[in-house]
């Protein structure tokens, strides 16, 4: 039996949804699963982690995220527990942490996986912005994978006996790369890469103020708000809202594109959405070829109506 390790990412102490996807994937493999969590007290997370065999608690005086320290610690965890495969989410932190770990553990890393075969140490990931799928295999002793959020349907964990609790000390080597400050955003926005529902606006929004109608719809749906590059470049939306090839790749269950033409560079950023809705006044807009449902009409009329209708439906 192989030893599998999972990096459990906490966000301001909260348990991220992506962790549950990793737990589901690992539990299905039937191997011995080690969940690694950096925290002073693992108790609040033990219920979420009850399906794993070992919880490795990383302890230290200052556990705030410092990539070099985290990577060095995880490399030590991989050694100590002889982990054959180690997985994390392809989140902002996963993208920063796992390549560092790959270098320190001298292990191959497949990033942004859609499916992972732990037996064969293989994974499928999108390449060419999702225009193709690639199957890769990790050679060598240890394999690292980061998994795209929202890909694996979360299943309830079957709890066996209580996990064994082990601890590791945080690596205290002086980090080369030092985070000196984290600037939180003023508004509490939904993280697009993990959002279940996204409402996006394009050039047709015409002005920054008009995004309010999308935000109102998003509020009703508890959705994130995205934008096309044209909307970002015109200054209607901030660059962290851009969806597409040079923006974010998103993977929600519902994506509502409002006044977006559907250029290939936008489409590759949202094509894996389970359901795509397009609202566009031009019946010839390419987005209609890619959407599951479309409404031909003026978004300034349709979006407010949609908000009211959804409000009614959700009661």
């Amino acid at each position: 039996m192989a030893n599998i390790g999972l990096y459990i990412e906490l966000k301001k102490g909260g348990f991220k949804k992506a962790n549950r996807e990793l737990l589901t994937l690992a539990a299905k493999s039937g191997h011995k699963v080690h969940a690694v969590v950096f925290c002073a007290d693992p108790q609040p997370y033990m219920d979420e982690l009850r399906g794993v065999q070992v919880v490795v608690q990383v302890q230290g005086a200052d556990l705030s995220y410092q990539p070099d320290r985290y990577a060095a610690t995880l490399a030590a965890v991989i050694e100590e527990f002889k982990l054959d495969a180690f997985l994390g989410a392809f989140s902002a932190q996963g993208k920063d942490l796992f390549p560092r770990l790959a270098a320190k553990a001298k292990a191959g890393l497949i990033s942004d996986c859609l499916a992972v075969d732990l037996e064969k140490r293989q994974a499928i990931k999108p390449v060419y912005s999702g225009k193709l799928l690639a199957e890769y295999r990790v050679e060598g002793q240890r394999a690292l994978f980061t998994v795209r959020p929202n890909v694996i349907p979360v299943e309830a964990v079957v709890a066996g006996s209580a996990p064994e609790l082990k601890s590791m000390a945080l690596d205290m080597t002086e980090p080369r790369t030092r985070i000196v400050e984290v600037i939180q955003s003023a508004s509490q926005r939904v993280d697009l890469t993990e959002a279940e529902i996204i409402v996006s606006g394009g050039r047709a929004m015409k002005a920054r103020e008009n995004f309010v109608i999308l935000e109102d719809l998003a509020k009703v749906l508890n959705a994130g708000v995205g934008a096309s590059r044209a909307a970002v470049d015109a200054g209607f939306a901030s660059s962290d809202m851009q969806v597409g090839q040079t923006g974010k790749v998103v993977n929600p269950k519902l994506y509502i594109a409002c006044g977006i033409s559907g250029a290939i560079q936008h489409f590759v950023g949202m094509k894996t959405s389970k359901v795509i809705v397009a609202i566009n006044k031009d019946p010839e807009a390419p987005i209609f070829k890619k959407a599951d449902y479309g409404i031909v009409g003026d978004l300034f009329t349709v979006v407010p109506l949609l908000k009211e209708e959804i409000k009614k439906a959700l009661g």
Binding site: P126, E135, K290
Partner: peptide
């Protein structure tokens, strides 16, 4: 350390409908 085994085109979504 990582080898490419295969490239393939993803299945295309069937075209949706305009309401």
């Amino acid at each position: 350390l990582v080898s490419l085994l295969k490239l393939s085109s993803p299945a295309e979504k069937p075209q949706g409908r305009v309401i």
